[in-house]
C-alpha cells in the first residue's frame, strides 16, 4: 500500500517536471498544445475511493493553475475528468482487475483499451480546459479544433511514456 502511494507521488512529481520543462515549452503549432499531467488521474489505482479520485483530480488541476496562473481552468477540467473516469472506467476493467487493485495502464488494460480510454478522457479534458482558458463563445470552433489535434499528441506522448517507463508484469 505504502509503496503504491510512494509510486503515485513520484509519478505526480515526474509529470510536473515533464510539464514544466517539456510540454510547457514545445510549440509545434498554434493548434497543438499537448498535456500529459492528467495521466496521473487516469492511472490512479482502480480501488481509489470515488471521493479520493475527485479530490485528487481537483488538487492536481489546482496545482497547475497555481504555477501557470490560469484561474481555475486546469482544476475544473481535471475535476471533470475525474468524474468521467469514475463513470467510464468500470467498462474497461474486470472483477479480477478490481480485486488486484490494478492501475489503469498500457499493460493492465491492453493497448487498444488503454488508447481508447486515454483518448476519450483526454479529449473531454482538453475541450473543457481550452474553452475555460479562453472563456469566449466565439472561440469555440477554434478550441474544438485545437482540443482534437492536441488530444492526439497528448495521447501519443502518454503512450510513448508508458512504453518507456512501464514494464509488463509477469503473472
Amino acid at each position: 500500500m505504502n509503496q503504491q502511494v510512494f509510486k503515485n507521488i513520484m509519478l505526480f512529481l515526474a509529470l510536473a517536471v515533464g510539464d514544466i520543462v517539456f510540454t510547457n515549452r514545445i510549440s509545434l503549432s498554434t493548434y497543438i498544445s499537448p498535456y500529459i499531467y492528467h495521466f496521473f488521474v487516469l492511472q490512479l489505482p482502480v480501488r481509489t475511493s470515488r471521493n479520493g479520485v475527485i479530490l485528487l483530480g481537483f488538487l492536481t488541476g489546482l496545482f497547475y493553475d497555481l504555477i501557470y496562473h490560469t484561474g481555475g481552468a486546469h482544476a475544473a477540467a481535471t475535476c471533470f475528468l475525474a468524474l468521467l473516469r469514475i463513470i467510464i472506467l468500470p467498462a474497461f476493467i474486470s472483477v479480477e482487475d478490481k480485486d488486484n487493485n490494478i492501475s489503469p495502464g498500457i499493460y493492465t488494460l491492453g493497448q487498444g483499451s488503454f488508447l481508447f480510454y486515454t483518448f476519450i478522457l483526454t479529449l473531454v479534458h482538453h475541450i473543457l480546459f481550452f474553452n475555460l482558458e479562453i472563456f469566449k463563445i466565439s472561440s469555440i470552433p477554434l478550441t474544438l479544433l485545437k482540443a482534437s489535434l492536441s488530444s492526439i499528441f497528448s495521447v501519443l506522448l502518454i503512450y510513448l511514456l508508458s512504453l518507456l517507463f512501464y514494464r509488463k508484469k509477469r503473472i
Binding site: 475527485i54 493553475d65 496562473h69 481552468a73 482544476a75 475544473a76 475535476c79 468524474l83 469514475i86
Partner: peptide
C-alpha cells in the same frame, strides 16, 4: 457523495475562472 463533492469542487473552480482578474 462523490457527486456532491464534484459539484462543490467544480463550483470553486468556476468561481476561480470567472474571478480570474482578482485571482492573484
Amino acid at each position: 457523495g462523490f457527486v456532491l463533492l464534484f459539484i462543490l469542487l467544480e463550483a470553486i473552480a468556476f468561481i476561480l475562472v470567472v474571478r480570474r482578474s482578482n485571482y492573484h
